[in-house]
Design a binder for these strands. Structure first.
Lengths: 250, 250
DNA sequence: TCGTTCGAGTTTACAGTGTTCACTGTTTAC
DNA sequence: GTAAACAGTGAACACTGTAAACTCGAACGA
């Protein structure tokens, strides 16, 4: 785990590559959009030089997509960590609200990472694998169960196709240690993520009454639905003030 | 309601405009994407001539977006009408499944209409107003209630902000005739649409285990959730075979 | 230390994009 | 029958991503 032996040149290379990513992201926000020439100018070189760092325009987009995902995941972790470690319900709520707030404030970046039609064409597996943002929520659901031990779905009651997924979940990282008897938690986890993702996407793309978004009522009711999903509705009164505080644009 | 007095020229004009839309939509499917020159060639003229019919590239996109929405709405209505008129639950289920199937089969078009970041910038109200696809579902929920008369949320129990929306819903067309005591149906309606939209969007953009999509388990469980939302879970056993039949790619 | 190699970067160029302008004919209308 | 409105063309402009040839400086092995 020592410092990797990077040559002087390689360090330089990584630095400018980082600069390219940051320039691209700032351009993504501005009108006029992301163009190679604009990126090059912002970095201080000419467009073809970018091809020393990036195979393609699409490769550049992939690069900044990953960067956005990582940064978003970090943002969500920060929100999570603002709450005590032994209160996973509070942690997941703050993380969810932070995610929503970020998405509404950065619609273009959200669309790039979470609603990108072109990325569907490529290999799906890899995309899911390093979707850090989703993984953070996965971990939190797991921690939520460790604390509250809410009843899990009976495997016998589940669709066999769901069982198959639950037996061999494609979730990276820390969830390998799920004990056998808690495997059906994965199913709740998938549903939970679907509701969060679905609600936020609806709000971001505005396919509903604008007042629903502005007042956050739909999102609030979705949060309540999550509590129901996890069978911890009795926690809701305790957490309500926290929800309001965080929804109030903190 | 007589035939509108269209001049010979105007009829021609509308015909070629329709041809332009159809050419554009066929190009949307092909790789290479939608370009003015390609459209022009397919229609048999040169690119600048398109500006006689369309203000802008973006205007063309808006045009075909509306066209897709209308066609999708028609498709959904057809699915709905395959079921008897006095069985709104069956009708809404078939419509929902048809919507999902269309979305998964036409990801690019779905993204254009239902997950278009650029359309958020423009005036929201108009977009929602002529979103025919959503309106069809709205109507069906209304008909579902007319038949089953499931209990509605108590206005007193609702968030005041939600009440405000429910009092003055921005839903066009046939829903103006909702009686005063059924106004809170609007809130269920919004939630219902959110779940359908959210689930389909998640599946289309593939931000979950691919097997979840392929097996349709998430969508199936979402349908069950809708029944729960409307308090008609007792109808589920009766409708299950219909769901399976329609999910089996008919 | 000297040559060689390699790599970052520029120049030029090409095909293709949306869009504008000046210009044809043809159709409609008075 | 003449004038205006209209559909459509051709050339041009300012862009886009991308490829090839080239230059210059830093790193490396002898």
């Amino acid at each position: 785990m020592t410092a990797t032996p990077v040559s002087r040149r390689e360090r330089q290379r990584l630095a400018t590559l980082d600069e390219i990513v940051r320039a691209s992201r700032s351009l993504l926000r501005e009108p006029g959009g992301l163009t190679l020439r604009a990126v090059a100018q912002k970095v201080g070189m000419t467009a073809p030089a970018l091809y020393r760092y990036v195979d393609d325009y699409r490769a550049l987009v992939r690069l900044i997509t990953r960067d956005i995902d990582r940064e978003t995941a970090a943002l969500i972790r920060a929100a999570r960590d603002s709450q005590p470690e032994d209160d996973p319900a509070a942690r997941i709520i703050c993380a969810g609200i932070a995610f929503r707030r970020w998405a509404l404030a950065n619609r273009a970046e959200f669309a790039l990472v979470f609603a990108n039609p072109s990325s569907t064409a490529e290999d799906h597996a890899e995309m899911m694998a390093d979707e850090e943002t989703a993984v953070v929520f996965h971990e939190m659901v797991w921690q939520l169960w460790q604390k509250h031990r809410f009843p899990l779905p009976d495997p016998a009651s589940l669709d066999p196709l769901v069982l198959e997924i639950v037996e061999d979940p494609m979730i990276p990282g820390k969830l390998d240690g799920i004990p056998e008897e808690a495997r059906t938690l994965t199913w709740l986890l998938i549903q939970s993520w679907a509701r969060l993702y679905g609600t936020v996407t609806l709000e971001v793309f505005g396919h509903c009454d604008p007042r629903v978004i502005e007042s956050a009522s739909l999102f609030r009711s979705m949060l309540a639905g999550q509590a129901e999903l996890f069978g911890i509705t009795d926690e809701l009164p305790r957490l309500a003030p926290l929800v309001e505080e965080w929804l109030a644009e903190r």
